[in-house]
Design a protein around this nucleic acid. Structure first.
Lengths: 300, 300
DNA sequence: ATAATCCATGAGCGACGCTCATGTCGCGAG
DNA sequence: CTCGCGACATGAGCGTCGCTCATGGATTAT
């Protein structure tokens, strides 16, 4: 046995097979033969001493060891990718090139990122950020980062909702209050149906509802917070939304603070440990911290 | 250009050349020819598009880009190393194999690590920890971790003394007070020479001295804190040492608390971002946090 | 049964990294 | 000034290894 560590092409094969859920499909996406992939997976398994994929009629699925290995493979490949830009930046006064991958939920992407990306561009004109908008359900943006698919994520951090973040590093950015919105014409929210959406983790607002002396007559579920606000503007109901969603909302909406006990969520960033030390990610975090999220939403 | 990312063997060459400060010497330590190393460095430089080493009569020295690349190379190689153990652990119920590299200053290695390593061994009998004892001067243990030479370091964290830790993640473990020690026979410290040692960052105690109404008659510098304590025990002077150094000190020493304004330092851990998510490092940190550093030193 | 769709296997070929031998450059001693 | 030494650079040849092509084996749907 000459070397027991995986070569980059083997790492790529592992990732590709995991994502394509099959050797043949994984081979196709790399422009390789199914045979080459079969060989590569086999030697990788021999080198690591573990079976990485269960093969079956319906393709290949990673084992526990495979899941771990694929995740590490993505991180290593990403580090290899960034070596060039990082080294060149060190030689050229800190100006980065290449790509930085950001995962964010919709309202963060729309309302937080633009300013931060402007700031980033001013420091690194040649660096192209790629933003993936991810529903904050399930593993959400945190999962994207943990799996090595993004370098930095904007996430809602809530110790109650998600378990301790594993495989990622987090930092808090700000607390975000929820506000109640209803059509500008209506006297108040009472009697109107509640409009909710899948991503809106109701655990944040549940406590608040318990302490009220009324409950909405009905609940409607919409696609996302943008749709919710349009529906509210159209007089179809009221909603409880995070402040950030209110930015750039259509007219005809009245927002109402929920008082000292207002539900709130923590918005923060999540970064891959392996990428945390790269100049790109560090500058991004600096930008996030420096961006005033203030202008504390329009609360009537 | 087929691939623009470096192969593992090239990463190894970069690290080796940087450490050996020369192509030939770097080649020797890898069991390669000087020619092979020359070729490897050349192709690496072409792939990254930067000059990584300045060649000269007295060998090779990394450029700025080279320093960055070598550091990243070490991290990538380490990740490649850990892939096998991590994957096997995922398949075998979490029992890790392989090596974990710890950097610690002397008193931490002697007084903190044993318990933590016991704990680690109970969880991972096959995992062999390697401890490097590093003087906490200059970059210290933090530097070892930042450069990818250690996975976890025990360091003194002090915002005044060291700049913001870069390239590493830190966590605080505990505050450690300084105490004054003098020979058991003597009535008090006054009149005795102060015994100090290089590693003992005097900035911690300087403020305290300013507020005293006396100053030591002379200052003697010793090799390390162990030597200092022996000298104190022998009646040769008094010293101000962190509590941790007192553990297992020779007899004949009286320790004296320095009161509410006693100088103190923060002891914490430092981990490489790339390694922070590995099971080995996570278990180590858990162990460090769980280890009661209490038994709060013997203070008279 | 048979077909379809996966993955596994073996032989051959080409690319690439290593070594050996030699070239080039800079610097200090005589 | 030039010689020599100690560094890296360069080029040709060779072995290893990863890729492809062709084919075999296993499992499931029809």
């Amino acid at each position: 046995m000459t070397t027991s560590e995986l070569a980059p092409h083997e790492l790529r094969v592992l990732v590709s097979v995991a994502e394509a859920q099959g050797f043949g499909a994984g081979a196709a996406r790399l422009g390789l033969t199914q045979s080459a992939v079969s060989h590569a997976v086999r030697t990788a398994e021999r080198k690591l001493g573990v079976v990485l994929f269960t093969r079956g009629r319906q393709g290949a699925a990673p084992t526990d060891a495979g899941v771990r290995a694929v995740s590490q493979a993505r991180h290593i490949l990403r580090l290899l990718d960034t070596m060039g830009p990082e080294a060149r930046a060190a030689a050229a006064g800190g100006q980065l090139t290449g790509t930085v991958r950001i995962a964010a939920f919709r309202s963060a992407a729309v309302h937080i990122l633009p300013g931060v990306l402007d700031l980033l561009r001013s420091r690194h004109p040649e660096l192209s950020p790629r933003v993936d908008i991810v529903r904050e359900v399930g593993a959400g943006t945190t999962g994207e980062v943990a799996e090595g698919r993004a370098d930095l994520g904007i996430a809602t951090l809530n110790p109650d909702t998600y378990p301790i973040p594993k495989d990622v590093l987090t930092g808090k950015l700000f607390d975000e209050r929820y506000v109640l919105v209803h059509p500008a014409g209506a006297a108040g929210p009472r009697g109107l149906p509640l409009i909710d959406w899948a991503e809106n983790c109701s655990s944040y607002t549940r406590r608040w509802w318990r302490e009220q002396d009324w409950l909405p007559t009905a609940t409607v579920t919409a696609e996302d917070d943008g749709v919710v606000l349009s529906m509210v503007a159209a007089g179809m109901g009221m909603a409880i939304v995070p402040e950030l969603s209110l930015r750039g909302a259509p007219g005809g909406i009245t927002a109402q603070d929920l008082g000292p006990d207002a539900p709130s969520r923590v918005v923060g960033y999540v970064v891959s440990p392996a990428m945390a030390s790269t100049a790109a990610v560090r500058d991004l975090i600096r930008g996030l911290r420096a961006t005033p999220v203030g202008a504390r939403a329009v609360v009537v």
